[in-house]
Design a protein around this nucleic acid. Structure first.
Length: 269
DNA sequence: CGGGCTGTTGACTC
DNA sequence: AGAGTCAACAGCCC
């Protein structure tokens, strides 16, 4: 479940190590992840030189001399920089470079590898509608975005067209730090709560970036991240005492996802 | 060995 | 426009 911290880290690792390399071969084991026919994809990106790697939310933007490679890992997976002698067992795409290294992309099944020609980024629907990066969001922005909206705060925060980058793993602690129940209607939030929420989004995601990303995700070099269960306040800790008030942490259903809350610190009413 | 759960996103319906 | 449900089918836990 890579979210903004992991993808941001992957983008900077990839930028540092991949820029300047040229793609000399592409293997694809699952063409349904592509937005164009397999042949078109391979032809488009073969001989492309990598120019830059950035991210917006959970999407990676690889800029090449022949257009864009857009990657979304979906519900889990890795991007590894390896050599042919050390290929992992599982992979969806392999990009061979001109120096014997290769980039291996793996994900479960809900991942995307899209090709977009240079200058046509606007025409890519999935990334075109993404909201601002969660880390670039100020309290003022958030207040303006929430104003006039309806619906529940958790749906709002998970909606990538509003804010890009927050997923269901980090959201538990973000809402806990803000003392906001996931099912609160956004139009009932006070200015003070929105300010606290903006701060919590920033703090929550930055802490994980500083620690190298979540422990269940791998870096470009196959190492686990340093953000561990010890860094998580209430997420996935059902039954454990709330670190603030001591009440048992609860797991509740919130639409199609689950949420971990302290019902004392995050009252709904 | 099997059932339940999790994570992301788009499509679809009401 | 928002809420609910489903589908894509890997891997872990009990």
């Amino acid at each position: 479940m890579p979210e903004l911290p992991e993808i941001t880290l992957r983008a900077s690792e990839m930028k540092r190590r991949l820029v300047g390399k040229t793609i000399v071969g592409i293997k694809i084991s699952q063409s349904k992840s592509l937005n164009v026919p397999k042949k078109t994809f391979i032809k488009a990106l073969s001989d492309a030189k990598l120019l830059n790697v950035t991210n917006r939310g959970k999407w990676l933007f690889v800029e090449t001399s022949k257009g864009w490679l857009l990657l979304n890992l979906g519900m889990g997976g890795e991007i590894l920089l390896v050599t042919h002698e050390r290929l992992p067992e599982k992979w969806r795409l392999i990009f061979d470079f001109d120096d014997d290294s290769c980039l291996v992309v793996n994900f479960w099944w809900t991942g995307y590898a899209h090709y977009v020609p240079s200058g046509k980024l606007n025409s890519h629907a999935m990334t075109g509608k993404l909201g601002p990066n969660a880390l670039d969001l100020t309290a003022k922005d958030l207040r303006a975005m929430i104003k006039g909206q309806r619906g529940r705060i958790k749906s709002f925060l998970l909606n990538q067209s509003k804010i890009a980058g927050i997923g269901n793993a980090y959201i538990h602690d973000i809402l806990f730090m803000s003392r906001i129940h996931p099912l609160r209607e956004v139009n009932t939030l006070t200015d003070a709560e929105i300010k606290g929420l903006a701060q919590a989004i920033n703090d929550g995601l930055k802490l994980s970036i500083d620690k190298g990303g979540a422990f269940y995700e791998l870096t470009l070099y196959g190492k686990k991240g340093g953000f561990t269960m010890d860094d998580i306040l209430i997420g996935y800790k059902k039954g454990k005492p709330c670190p603030v008030c001591g009440r048992a942490i609860e797991k509740i259903k919130t639409g199609s996802t689950s949420s971990f809350i302290c019902s004392n610190c995050q009252p709904l009413a």
